[in-house]
Design a protein around this nucleic acid. Structure first.
Lengths: 111, 111
DNA sequence: TTTATTAATCGTATATTTACGATGAACTAT
DNA sequence: ATAGTTCATCGTAAATATACGATTAATAAA
């Protein structure tokens, strides 16, 4: 049977979760975020020294993280310092926490 | 200055986080997971009735979720029941929880 | 002014993702 | 056997992501 196939509309929450998930869906971006959080402070393009990837590629990944809102950059010529965007980070924390909240998970009889 | 550009090696954790994040990086997969968790029980291809997308597309997304380990399918001919994979779900919960853990976030002086 | 440093952006090649319709496999019911 | 149901898989087109080197912009240092 034929069905509608209109364009699917997503809620703001769904879009938001998905876009943050997409931001951390690449291992190098996870590594960058871990570096930014573990260094307990901001960080700059020393990332380029640490991670064996072309500078342009890293810059591209940083842009992806910026766009997601998970990090912020502070221009400090000729360098740029990146750090976690604390507010959005906390937001992500509670979003993912709520999403994966154990209590909600599958009370089914499958096995 | 020229740098190495060897292939970047990622840790198991980094790969794992990234692949789960990739699984939930599409809004329709988030919706599917929310349906599976909220229905407080398993679910079948009624998804096809609820979500205005081609059956083949939904099947494709279900495969992506299966591959991520977040859901499991139980063949129940001619139907298939899907539900959350509880163990992996809890694992994801703690992984993301640990990753976004507020205490770790950015003690920097940026602003 | 010239040179060096840092990092974004451009151009581009390749790989992956996403969507669809069509087909096929497995099983039920007639 | 035949027909119907459910769902995965195939083939495919279009969009997006990923990586690179080259270039450019902004600034500091000489």
């Amino acid at each position: 049977m034929k069905r509608t196939l209109s364009v699917v509309e997503y809620s703001g929450d769904e879009e938001c979760m998905a876009s943050i998930a997409k931001a951390i869906s690449h291992p190098v971006r996870i590594r960058i975020l871990k570096l930014l959080t573990s260094q307990q402070c901001c960080f700059t393009g020393e990332l380029t020294e640490i991670i064996p990837m072309a500078q342009s590629t890293i810059s591209q990944h940083l842009k992806a993280l910026l766009d997601s809102g998970l990090i912020q950059g502070e221009i400090n010529p000729p360098k740029v310092r990146y750090c976690i965007h604390r507010e959005n980070w906390l937001k992500a924390y509670s979003m993912f926490g709520g999403f994966f909240n154990a209590d909600l998970a599958c009370r089914c009889d499958c096995r």
